[in-house]
Design a protein around this nucleic acid. Structure first.
Lengths: 114, 114
DNA sequence: TGCTCATATCGATGGCTGTCAATATTAGGA
DNA sequence: TCCTAATATTGACAGCCATCGATATGAGCA
């Protein structure tokens, strides 16, 4: 049986702040935005995200090869991406399948508009 | 007299990679993209960027107050932002004036599209 | 040329995090 | 209920970086 697993998505993050050019960011706004971008500031994590975003679904086991990272490291990165609301995972049998959260990437990129 | 100062803008960064959802990022592409996002992953730096992006020009001296950071720290952050091609500075007299580089923010946000 | 002031650079430090080995957990199959 | 396989968690460590005090640079001014 399939279960939707959305791990600890911080709801407050989802609409953290308006465009960066419309008024100075408050300290909490800046903290939240920085936290999102820090999730995107790791090469391995970006490659994982791009692998998932380029298809509909990717198994955790198919991420070790392309990224050349150990299994615990992959697990760590997918968790971080999920907690940031960028991807969500579904466990089917022994396998974990990841897919991007629709609209989330657009939301984050919206921070950078003026 | 005014001089345009563009500090060490890495040209190769400008078009580092296509949208994150159109094929897996190569290792160099991921490295470059991660480097850009790491520049955006600091709260103080984001506040500085938003202060500059919300007006046409901001003096370095006007960044210490709102951010509550020391002068060396401000100088460090503006340098990092400039090296990432996000802002550019112009020295007039004793003051350094910063403004956003047109189109650069849009370029970076483009990485996050599918 | 001195003096002052805005900014830049240097050096040191504390905290954060990416990484992996070892281990735990959980699901399917016999 | 064992065994195996996929993933999660834990613990430890190394490298990076934000921060600031001290100092250097350089521009305006008298």
């Amino acid at each position: 049986m399939a279960r939707r697993m959305t791990i600890n998505v911080d709801e407050a993050v989802v609409g953290c702040c308006g465009p960066i050019g419309s008024g100075a960011l408050s300290e909490p706004e800046a903290n939240e935005a920085a936290r999102i971008f820090s999730v995107l500031s790791d090469p391995a994590r970006l490659r994982i995200l791009s692998l998932i975003a380029s298809t509909t679904e990717v198994c955790s086991c198919d991420l070790e090869g392309p990224t050349q990272k150990s299994q615990p490291t992959i697990s760590h990165h997918t968790r971080v991406l999920a907690e940031a609301g960028l991807i969500s995972g579904e466990k089917r049998g022994r396998w974990m399948w990841w897919s991007v959260v629709p609209g989330r990437l657009k939301e984050v990129s919206g921070i950078l508009s003026r």
